[in-house]
C-alpha cells in the first residue's frame, strides 16, 4: 500500500445515487486472476459506446476527467457486490479518493484496506463541491488525512470520519494483515479454548 498524507488535486463528478459495483466494473471483467488493467474498464458501460469508442458525453472522457484524482459521487456509493475489483479499477484509473455522502459497507472496507480514501461529507458540502465543479472544472481541493479534513478553495475545512486504525495504516502505508499476524499468539489461545465448530475435510 502507498502512503497517503495530503492530496491536492482536481475532481470529477458522477453524482448519480446508488452507483453499484456492477456499474463501477461490470461482471464480465471479473474473469481475471490479477489486478492489472481494470482501470481501463472503470464505468465501462457508461464510458464507451456499443462499438467500443469513448462516449464523449461521459465525464471521464473529458480532458478534466482524465486527470482528476478525486471522484465526487452520489449517495450510497459502491453498493451491491463485494468485488474488490471495484476499488482496484478506481485506483487503476488513477483516483486516490472518492467523496460521497455515504458509502456501502463492503466497498468502504475494501477501499480502506487498499488506501483508497472513502470520504463521507454532509449533504451541504457535497452540494457545494458539485457547484464549485460546475463553475470551474479545474477547481482543486486538498485532502489532509492526518487532520481528517477536506480543504475547500475558500479555505473552509470540512472534517470527515475514518476509523483510527485504518487511518494509521494508510498514513504509514502498511497492510492490515500485519496487525492480524501480530496477534498470532492470541489466535492460538483462542483456538486452544474453542473446539472446532466445523471441519471441511471431515
Amino acid at each position: 500500500m502507498e502512503k497517503f498524507a495530503t492530496l491536492t488535486a482536481t475532481m470529477v463528478a458522477i453524482p448519480t445515487e446508488n452507483i453499484d459495483t456492477d456499474q463501477i466494473i461490470p461482471a464480465r471483467f471479473l474473469k481475471v486472476t490479477d489486478k492489472a488493467g481494470l482501470g481501463d474498464n472503470l464505468f465501462c458501460d457508461w464510458r464507451y459506446n456499443a462499438d467500443g469508442t469513448p462516449n464523449p458525453d461521459f465525464v471521464l472522457n473529458t480532458t478534466q476527467g482524465k486527470k482528476a484524482k478525486i471522484l465526487l459521487a452520489g449517495d450510497n456509493f459502491g453498493c451491491g457486490s463485494s468485488r474488490e475489483h471495484a476499488p482496484w479499477a478506481i485506483m487503476g484509473y488513477g483516483f486516490q479518493a472518492v467523496i460521497s455522502t455515504s458509502f456501502a459497507d463492503i466497498f468502504c472496507n475494501n477501499s480502506l484496506k487498499l488506501g483508497l480514501l472513502p470520504i463521507a461529507v454532509d449533504k451541504e458540502t457535497h452540494l457545494q463541491l458539485l457547484s464549485l465543479l460546475e463553475e470551474e472544472p479545474a477547481t482543486q481541493i486538498t485532502i489532509e488525512l492526518q487532520n481528517q479534513a477536506v480543504v475547500l478553495p475558500d479555505g473552509r475545512k470540512v472534517t470527515f470520519p475514518i476509523d483510527n486504525f485504518s487511518k494509521t495504516c494508510i498514513l504509514k502505508g502498511v497492510d492490515q494483515l500485519g496487525y492480524l499476524q501480530s496477534h498470532a499468539a492470541a489466535i492460538e489461545v483462542y483456538e486452544a479454548n474453542h473446539a472446532d465448530r466445523v471441519n471441511t475435510l471431515a
Binding site: 457486490s81 474488490e84 476499488p87 463492503i106 472496507n109 475494501n110 492480524l180
Partner: peptide
C-alpha cells in the same frame, strides 16, 4: 461478504 484482501486475511490467519 468480504473483499479479496480480506479473503487473504482469513486464509492466512
Amino acid at each position: 461478504g468480504i473483499g479479496t484482501s480480506e479473503v487473504e486475511h482469513v486464509l492466512a490467519t
